[in-house]
Simulated scan of single mutants.
Amino acid sequence: MAKVAEALRDGTARLAASGIDSALSDARILLMAALGIDRTGLLSRAAEPLPPEAAARYAAHLDRRAAREPVSRILGHREFWSLDFALGPATLDPRPDSETLVEAALAAAPDRPLLVLDLGTGTGCLLLAVLHDRPAAFGIGVDRSEAAARVARDNARALGLAGRATFLVGDWATALAGRFDLVLSNPPYIPDSDIAALEPEVREHDPRLALSGGVDGLDAYRALAAALPDLLAPGGTAVVELGIGQAADVAALFRGAGLDIAGTPHDLASIPRCLVATLGTKKAFGPTPDCR
């Protein structure tokens, strides 16, 4: 019977052989999950035999990860903004880069009663992260997928935010009336011709509906630009995620719809990760490249 440390070593080697750069980290997370322990527990049990039940779970986890299924999909949840979110087949797997949107949204959102809208809500991570940090706010999340909306509702309930969030099924904002202080969106922005070249963790496990941005990757931004002037309250703010190299094009679309561009905050890799637009009131945010 292999010891825990040996199982970690062998699992790391297997994942590395499958071309996974994060082999050690992934093997460690999967082994902790199989044992039901944290990292401290893993260290303290390194010299102990790996129980047969845990060994079987770990082997199954490794099989899936070696086939390039993401760790978050295997475990069924992802940490985002220090909160735990359940995933589903119909939801995008939240990425750390998307926390840039939350930072920008909180910078724009005073701590007072606010009405927040999240278009393409998926797991609800953007909306629920903002609501978590703005206890006077109320939010609505919209997704085309009924299955995704159910996951978001479950996440709101698990985080104790169900009383301040509601989730609807709809095509962007077509079923909505009224105006919002803050609109969030992580829309699909991958050009269709680029999807085949994505990493298998994304291409094969994220829903295509959440990836496909049309021929040029800008279809969803065109829809957002058309809808936002009727969705934003005067002085309201929209924060939308950007794909790499899309800042200037999206800024032009939004300006053409009568919105002011307040900034394009960068992620930790110094990439413009989101665009901040306002209706009637300009604000300044972070490093802002020339989007003229």
Score class of each variant (00 low, 15 high):
residue 217 G to V: 04
residue 238 A to K: 12
residue 223 A to H: 14
residue 196 A to G: 04
residue 228 L to E: 11
residue 192 D to E: 12
residue 217 G to M: 13
residue 252 A to Y: 00
residue 255 R to E: 14
residue 176 L to R: 07
residue 197 A to R: 05
residue 175 A to W: 06
residue 235 G to T: 06
residue 185 S to R: 11
residue 208 R to L: 15
residue 171 D to G: 12
residue 231 L to N: 04
residue 167 F to I: 13
residue 177 A to H: 14
residue 249 D to L: 12
residue 224 L to T: 04
residue 242 L to V: 03
residue 201 E to W: 01
residue 244 I to F: 14
residue 203 R to K: 15
residue 167 F to V: 13
residue 202 V to L: 02
residue 238 A to H: 10
residue 170 G to K: 07
residue 231 L to D: 03
residue 201 E to P: 14
residue 183 V to E: 05
residue 213 G to H: 00
residue 177 A to G: 14
residue 224 L to V: 10
residue 178 G to E: 06
residue 224 L to E: 05
residue 215 V to P: 01
residue 191 P to G: 01
residue 248 A to T: 14
residue 168 L to G: 02
residue 194 D to T: 07
residue 221 Y to V: 06
residue 220 A to M: 03
residue 225 A to Q: 04
residue 175 A to K: 10
residue 207 P to W: 10
residue 240 V to C: 15
residue 242 L to F: 15
residue 218 L to G: 07
residue 177 A to V: 14
residue 209 L to F: 02
residue 199 E to R: 01
residue 195 I to C: 01
residue 194 D to K: 02
residue 196 A to L: 06
residue 168 L to T: 09
residue 239 V to I: 15
residue 207 P to M: 08
residue 172 W to V: 04
residue 213 G to S: 02
residue 229 P to F: 13
residue 160 G to K: 10
residue 220 A to P: 05
residue 175 A to N: 05
residue 185 S to G: 03
residue 162 A to Y: 02
residue 209 L to Y: 02
residue 248 A to P: 11
residue 178 G to W: 13
residue 160 G to W: 01
residue 164 R to I: 07
residue 242 L to E: 07
residue 242 L to H: 02
residue 178 G to Y: 10
residue 181 D to M: 11
